[in-house]
Design a protein around this nucleic acid. Structure first.
Length: 1080
RNA sequence: GGGCGCGUAACUCAACGGCUAGAGUGCAACCCUUACAAGGUUGAAGUUGCUGGUUCGAAUCCAGUCGUGCCCACCA
């Protein structure tokens, strides 16, 4: 470090210095062998797709605060950083780039080629993210940086998949995916945008037939199995239908003569009727419930499909009350199919589309086979018209989902996917949150978790992508024989097949593979990626690895234990799992938090014997259980050495839960109240803010904004790269704008914009961060140029509290009070309160009052020594207190303080054990208070404020001292007398007398403060006096009236707490006394 | 449609059911006072969205209502 620190606050210098030392001395590095209770956090891994924005900045700042506090509290603290590979988003970005730069598709470069390119891209952008985190001051253990697609995570993924597969929790099933018929791939929900499309709503007649005709025409159905089912079904439905008509309410029985002969359904996609397998009505709709169990003849196909009841799908008040059901091509209808599956009224599922959007070749709709969707739609409508089955066609506007990538309409498309069964995994996860073993802060977010997980919807985990963890399942898609023949040139004989089977059995028993079979296929999950013996063998037998990859959340779900080395029993895992807290934003409670709890418990839970993952809470648990909604604690100290929480770590460890607390923090919004995101282009790069305000200012401001309920809105401004002018970011999405000051063109910092020589890239920032910058400046100035400058001049002497002034005792007590508030705030994740406590203390108490009070004392050789000691002790404590929030400035000031005054500390009040580096210093302990000083000093503040007020009212020049006499009751006059000099300095006045009784003061301005009479000489102006005092009198009168009213209310005096009643009485006495003095 | 929030000074936000509802910014006046003009002192600024209820007492709790935001499900 250079010997000379810059005179003015220079964040860039400070950040570089502190960062260099922290890195050189590896002070973020954690070692499991070190002593201390474990404290650990895993970072929510940012997506590698883009640069970080302020949302990430608040998230990581809060984590860093917790990490640094615990490091100072002597926990063995680890913060693991990392990045998420972000499946589809990343692949899409690279594919887009490929198209733009080389005009190639992914098929041109092939699977390996594409993945290689994505890795290269990842390297660049991953490094950028890490660099951003470092600039923010995140004290992550960079040696442990993980990536969700690195080898370590891959092993955990592989092992988890294998376990789930073996336990029968992974299965193959059909699912409706969002299918892009142009790119022929499924896409995620996030990549769909909805567009309003003008189309028609077609009303189609479906003729009703009863059961008799059914059996005659059933032959048109193709599979023998379904005929069999249908007959059974029809019979049972018949029973049910008659049941319902006899049971249901008035109006359900309709005269059969009036019954219609057809049903009318409305649709915007008429071609899908070819895949209809039912029509649904509401079971209590009197218009239709008589028809449940009967059939309709599906036009154009001549198929009979059942009329079923589905009260979830059908809203009887909407439209005709009849809904066509096309399970293979509509998500709601698919849900109907699922609901009725295995029930007596089970229905079929018919796919009519090919991956390219043409209609499947099928005897049932020969006329349309091979046609494109839109052509088929036209022809279906035409044919219905011709058949007289089109009731009407009306214009209609609807929202149609489009693929963001091909801009073509999405088709819901049925395909084979892998799923994880949720029920067995979800139940234990629900339990630990219900029981408060995992706690949410704020607590209301537990509901989000519970509601979502409570649905236990199976989790589709396969994605038709190339970027991700490939599904480790090999399938004999082509049958053994063909594959075997392709490899060995002949069909396998019986012996070979038997040998093959037994080899598989042996491998399965050895835990190398797991097998599941359907009638048509065999699925083999290979446990170890490096087990090439098995995989080569399988390939030779004609097995193929599933081409899909896993949902990116599958690897994220394992993050807390995979990053610590699981499945190995590493020292890291032993030491730091479960992690202490998860800090994240509310939008991924379901996608991420819930899944981490499930997989954590599944992989890490210690099951005794055969006991299932579910557990029964013991009595001990119940005793330890705390109320679900704890009130934010008022100042109280952190519990001693047993962690920031009182819950048992051992229990959490046994259950395998990934973290004990979940803190959901506020969301950062732009000036319009919209969430910051890359695609919207309203994200602000924290590094830009660091360049304009400094990292500490950024962190302080974000901490202050981290309230419990309110999201943080901030107006975004651009900094012109030409002239430095700062102006509001104009609305709209134009990539460039003109600077209002110099009129030159600049590029807006949107997504990955880089700017051009003509239009350089602007920085985005916000004047909301001024608070932090001003605060840091204040800290710098007072610490370096006042406190330390004085400490250099004044020799250290032993602390002797007997020599302390009122102000000395007061500031030390205030420090401890602040520390107590900060501890309570941090314990309940109320970061805003922590920031406010620091700010109020440092600026409001220390700078505004104590520093001023110390000035006369520092000039007095008898008092200078003690005052210097108090200044040093308080500054020491304050730097420790604020370091987690604003680490750079406090660290650099700390070094200087060490030089200037290496030994400091106020025994029993503020202990200051020395430390070379602040990051390694201890967190202060709450020392004892001075109640008397905290009572008396504010009286002086009040008198000073009143005198200042009078000066301003009278427009007295600051250079012109006024003469003041104070009449104060006995004790008070002694205290005031001791602080005469202080009052004189702060109020710029000259005090003549401070006495219990003053002679009559005729030529003086009279007012009151803190129960004393103040007389300001030479300011005699009855009008002005009246004006100044009139307002005070008004207030007093109102107050007296209110207090009297309260006391005369018997309900109040009898029901309100005694201390409040007493307080009211005291206030009344004081107010009346003051009113009397002022002659109100 | 379901769920969760929010509505307090011109702006951004605080405020365990209990002192005259606070702070920062902005605004006004005065001050380059020997740490700091990125500063200091003082001041103005509020029917706590609206209506009703519970209570000795409501910004706070309850009901309704209007406005607004987010998440989820989305209409044949």
């Amino acid at each position: 470090m250079p010997t000379e620190l810059p005179k003015s606050y220079d964040p860039a210098f400070i950040e570089a210095e502190a960062d260099r030392v922290w890195m050189e001395e590896r002070l973020f590095h954690a070692d499991p062998a070190t002593a201390g209770e474990p404290y650990s956090i895993v970072i929510p891994p940012p997506n590698v797709t883009g640069a970080l924005h302020l949302g990430h900045a608040i998230n990581t700042t809060l984590q860093d605060i917790l990490v640094r506090v615990h490091r100072m509290r002597r926990f063995n603290t680890l913060w693991i950083p990392g990045i998420d590979h972000a499946g589809i988003a990343t692949q899409a970005v690279v594919e887009k780039q490929l198209k733009e730069k080389e005009n190639k598709t992914r098929h041109d470069v092939g699977r390996e080629g594409l993945v290689e390119r994505i890795w290269a891209w990842k390297q660049q952008y991953g490094d950028r993210i890490v660099a951003q985190l470092k600039r923010l001051g995140c004290s992550c253990d960079w040696d442990r940086t993980r990536f969700t697609l690195d080898d370590m995570c891959a092993r955990a993924v592989r092992e988890t998949f294998f376990k789930l597969f073996k336990d029968g929790l992974i299965y193959r099933g059909k699912r409706l995916v969002n299918w892009d018929t142009f790119l022929q791939t499924s896409i995620s929900d996030d990549e769909i945008y909805h567009e309003t499309v003008k189309t028609s709503l077609w009303h189609i007649r479906y003729p009703i037939e009863d059961k008799l005709t059914t059996e005659n025409t059933e032959n048109t159905e193709n599979t023998e199995k379904s005929t069999e089912k249908k007959e059974k079904k029809s019979a049972s439905e018949e029973g049910r239908a008659s049941d319902s008509s006899s049971v249901s309410s008035v109006g359900s029985v309709v005269n059969s003569a009036s019954r219609p002969t057809h049903m009318v359904v409305a649709t915007t996609r008429p071609e899908t009727m070819l895949g209809d397998t039912a029509v649904a009505v509401h079971s209590e709709d009197p218009r239709w419930n008589w028809a449940i169990g009967k059939f309709v003849r599906l036009p154009l196909t001549d198929r009979l499909i059942p009329i079923i009841a589905d009260d979830i799908l059908v809203d009887p008040k909407f439209g005709t009350g009849v809904v066509k059901v096309t399970p293979a091509h509509d998500p709601n209808d698919y849900a109907v199919w699922q609901r009725h599956k295995g029930q007596p009224d089970e229905i079929d599922l018919i796919n009519i589309l090919l991956p390219d959007g043409r209609l499947v070749e099928d005897a049932r709709w020969k006329a349309y086979a091979g046609m494109k969707r839109d052509a088929a739609r036209l022809k279906v409508v035409e044919d219905l018209k011709a058949a007289g089955l089109l009731e009407k066609e009306e214009p209609y506007e609807t929202q149609v989902g489009h693929s963001d990538r091909s801009k073509t309409p999405i088709e819901p498309y049925l395909s084979d996917q892998w799923f994880v069964k949720m029920a067995p995994l979800a139940e234990p996860a629900l339990e630990v949150v219900r029981e408060g073993i995992i706690k949410f802060y704020p607590s209301r977010f537990a509901n989000t978790f519970l509601d979502w997980l409570g649905e236990k919807r199976d989790w589709p985990i396969s994605r038709q992508l190339w970027w991700g963890h490939r599904i480790p399942v090999w399938t004999n898609r082509v049958g053994y024989e063909a594959g075997y023949k392709a490899t060995y040139g002949s069909k396998p004989d019986g012996l070979a097949v038997v040998e093959h089977r037994s080899l598989l059995t042996v491998a399965e028993a050895a835990g190398r593979i797991a097998i599941s079979r359907t009638e048509l296929q065999e699925f083999i999950c290979v446990r170890d990626e490096s087990d090439s013996e098995i995989t080569e063998y399988l390939l030779n037998w004609g097995y193929e690895q599933d081409p899909d990859v896993l949902d990116t959340w599958f690897s994220s779900a394992l993050w807390p234990h995979s990053t610590l080395g699981w499945p190995d029993k590493t020292p890291d895992l032993e030491k730091w799992y479960p992690t202490s807290v998860l800090v994240t934003s509310r939008d991924i409670i379901t996608l991420w938090v819930a899944r981490m709890v499930m997989t954590g418990m599944y992989n890490m839970g210690k099951r005794e014997g055969e006991a299932p993952a579910e557990r029964v809470l013991s009595e001990g648990d119940a005793a330890r259980r705390e109320p679900r909604t704890p009130k934010p604690p008022h100042p109280h100290p952190l519990p001693g050495g047993e962690g920031i929480r009182g819950r048992s770590r051992a229990e959490a460890s046994r259950l395998g839960i990934p973290f004990m607390d979940v803190h959901i923090h506020a969301t950062i919004l732009d000036g319009k109240g919209e969430r910051m995101s890359k695609t919207k282009g309203n994200g602000v790069d924290p590094v830009d803010v660091i360049s304009t305000h400094g990292a500490d200012a950024l962190r302080f401001t974000l901490t202050q904004m981290a309230t419990e309920t309110q999201d943080a809105k901030m107006r975004v401004q651009l900094v012109c790269p030409h002239c430095g002018h700062q102006f509001d970011n104009p609305e709209g999405k134009a990539p460039t704008v003109a600077c209002p000051a110099c009129k030159k063109i600049i590029t807006r910092p949107m997504s990955n914009a880089t700017g051009t020589p003509d239009a350089p890239l602007a920085r985005a920032t916000s004047d909301r961060f001024d608070v932090g910058k001003h605060f840091c400046n204040k800290i710098w100035q007072v610490s370096l140029h006042f406190v330390m400058a004085n400490l250099e001049k004044i020799a250290a002497e032993d602390v002797d509290e007997m020599k302390w002034s009122l102000a000395d005792r007061w500031i030390v007590s205030r420090f401890n009070r602040t520390l107590e508030i900060a501890n309570g705030a941090l314990e309940s994740y109320r970061f805003d309160q922590y920031a406010k406590a620091c700010y109020d203390f440092f600026w409001g108490d220390f700078c505004d009052w104590y520093v001023e009070a110390s000035k006369p004392a520092l000039r007095d050789s008898r008092r200078a020594g003690q005052t210097a000691a108090v200044l040093a002790g308080v500054l020491d404590g304050a730097l420790r207190l604020m370091h987690p929030m604003i680490p750079f400035i406090t660290e650099v000031l700390w070094w200087q303080l060490n030089k200037v005054r290496p030994q400091r500390g106020l025994p029993g009040r503020i202990e200051c054990p020395p430390s070379e580096r602040l990051i390694k210093a201890t967190w202060p302990a709450v020392g004892s208070f001075s109640e008397a000083a905290e009572f008396l000093f504010p009286k002086i503040q009040e008198i000073v404020a009143t005198l200042r007020n009078i000066r301003n009212q009278y427009n007295v020049s600051p250079k012109q001292p006024v003469t003041v006499s104070i009449q104060a009751p006995g004790d008070a006059s002694r205290t005031l007398g001791e602080n005469r000099e202080l009052i004189e300095l702060l109020a710029s006045c000259k005090i003549k007398d401070i006495l219990p009784a003053l002679p009559e003061m005729k030529n003086a301005f009279h007012t009151t403060a803190a129960g004393c009479d103040l007389y300001v000489e030479d300011l005699v102006d009855p009008e002005a006096e009246k004006k100044v005092n009139a307002k005070r009198c008004d207030d007093l009168k109102k107050q007296i009236a209110a207090l009297r009213g309260r006391l005369s209310n018997e309900a109040y005096t009898s029901k309100a707490p005694a201390h409040l009643v007493q307080q009211t009485k005291d206030q009344l006495t004081d107010a009346e006394a003051e009113a009397a003095k002022l002659g109100c």
